[in-house]
């Protein structure tokens, strides 16, 4: 083999080069893969188990957001955005809001099964009372956002809720509390909003003398009162009731180990393939 050919074989990539390098560095490949495998085994054995409690709720009415108009363009896109205040949208906004999560925080602020010892730690480390409360609030809200997840199903106009925790019984309790608080919170908000609307229309009727306008306003008023009744009696229906899970959802040990070892194998091949380039860079730096 001439010098030029030898150089080509070193520099230009081909699959034989890679296989040859892999064979040459077979111990490195095996060691890197084994490291990935061992780390994944240790991690999967030591990591806390997580249980998930699920529930599906169906809002009281289909919303403008979730039911697409049949007259909408089939293949293009319209830029309508939201119309009105859809119930699904309202639930989503509520679930995201700190004001709502604060209700859960206040109820469970001393609950170690939810917040662990993170909040209790702050009592020891932060001397300033006001700052401590602010920090505790921030940490608790962040953790609640991590624990409580939700997803919309626009095909069925439903919202899926999930709570992931180490303690499956407490996860079940929290889910039930979440559903209860959510229903009450939205109901209260709806009724308050509609009450102000009703008062507004009532005031208009009192001040109007034209019988036709009064008739129109009374129709509006009766609609609002009807809405108030509907929304105060039925915010959403629980389609899928929560139950205590029998199996953990995390970690899935065998999958985790197989996947990590496989990825480790591919990473080791990458590292071996980078060696000639690294050597080149090293020699350039050295020169």
């Amino acid at each position: 083999m001439s010098n030029e050919e030898q150089k080509d074989l070193m520099d230009e990539f081909n699959i034989y080069n890679l296989i040859r390098n892999l064979w040459k560095d077979k111990y490195q490949v095996v060691i890197i893969t084994m490291i990935f495998a061992v780390v994944s085994i240790v991690y999967s054995l030591r990591v806390d188990h997580l249980y998930e409690v699920n529930s599906v709720i169906k809002p009281a009415e289909a919303s403008a957001e979730t039911s697409l108009e049949s007259s909408g363009n089939l293949m293009g896109f319209s830029l309508g955005g939201y119309t009105g205040t859809p119930v699904i949208n309202q639930i989503l906004i509520t679930l995201k809001s700190n004001t709502f999560l604060e209700i859960l925080y206040k109820k469970y602020q001393n609950e170690e099964r939810l917040f662990g010892d993170g909040l209790a730690e702050l009592d020891k480390t932060e001397p300033d009372k006001l700052l401590r409360e602010q920090k505790k609030y921030d940490s608790a809200i962040k953790l609640l956002q991590k624990v409580i997840k939700f997803a919309v199903n626009t095909d069925h106009n439903t919202i899926g809720l999930s709570v992931k925790l180490k303690d499956k019984y407490f996860a079940y309790e929290l889910m039930n509390e979440l559903l209860f608080s959510l229903r009450n919170y939205i109901r209260k908000q709806n009724v308050e909003n509609l009450q102000s609307d009703i008062e507004f229309y009532q005031d208009l009727i009192d001040r109007t003398k034209d019988p036709r306008v009064i008739q129109m306003l009374e129709k509006k008023l009766s609609d609002k009162i009807e809405d108030k009744f509907v929304l105060s009696s039925n915010v959403f229906t629980v389609v899928n009731k929560p139950f205590v899970p029998s199996k953990r959802i995390y970690p899935k040990r065998s999958f985790m180990v197989v996947m990590t070892t496989f990825l480790g194998g591919l990473f080791s091949v990458l590292i071996v393939s980078l060696k000639p380039g690294m050597k080149k860079v090293y020699s350039i730096i050295k020169e």
Binding site: E65, L68, G72, N73, F77, L79, G80, G81, T154, D155
Partner: peptide, 12 residues
Amino acid sequence: APFRSLGGSATN
């Protein structure tokens, strides 16, 4: 295939 809302102006 179904047209779905992704929220905001991504309505279909």
